[in-house]
Amino acid sequence: MDVLLAILSQFGLYGLLTLGVAIIFAALRVVNLAQGDLAMTGAYVAVTATTVAFGWRVLLALALCVLPLLAIERVLLRRPLADGLATMLVTWGVGMALRQGAELLFTSTSRTVAAPAGGTVELLGTPYPAYRLVSGLVAVAVIAGVLLVAYRTGWGLTMRAVADNPTMAALLGTDPRRMRSAAFVIGGMLAVLAGALYSPLLAVNPTMGFGLLVPMFFALLFSRPGALGTAVTAALLVAALAVLLRTWLTDTLADALFYIVIIGTAALRSRSHVRRLLSWSRRILSPARSS
């Protein structure tokens, strides 16, 4: 039970970040390396705006980030359109600037936020921190909501169409540029939400986003480009792997093993016969699709 709750909590964090970065990747074909730093800015809003209730602070963070995100996409990510890697480097620069800006503004000292729902709740006999549960559930709800929008509404369909084939989508009357802006803002907002929502669990400091980048990156690379569902699944797997290893082993050993498993999986996945095996097993598991 404890383990499941731990996975829920970690998945909420990684899931929000990965989903955001996957949306951005789908529309812009760019890995947003500033994603962790966007989460950091969200957390700082939650830390600084202490005059209003926590829930409002999270919403405030989301509202405040819309315009800057739009500006970043419009001003900085438009020009090197031709080269995806150059754009990726721009996001790296943006992240670096955000980190350094936060350090100059708030100093490098870590801060915390009091959890809005203190105390513990009883879950099947085990006490569990109330806010940890709330944040995990809210995160999962948001992830589910975003997926629902992406797969069940016309807007989501258009978005995925743009991701699949921008030129085609443009011919069919969707403005891919507006879609790119929207995707970047939404993806960035998910990161800001993750940072603000999880701020009571974390130490808030300028470099906090850096540590979140690696698991998010792993999850993104294990997902299929443009397929948001697989990104969320990959985030779940990465979270589960990290939590399970750390539950069974000491942290140091778990950490090393985590990387070994990730590297091993990447190595195996790129072998064509393993890929084929995977696709067969998928076919066996879902025979309906093969007809």
Binding site: A6, L201, G211, T250, D251, A254
Partner: peptide, 16 residues
């Protein structure tokens, strides 16, 4: 006795 690598964000396993 518990040690955790620097940069850990989730402390649930250790705390448990």
């Amino acid at each position: 006795e518990e040690y955790s690598p620097l940069g850990q964000t989730d402390w649930q396993p250790v705390v448990t």
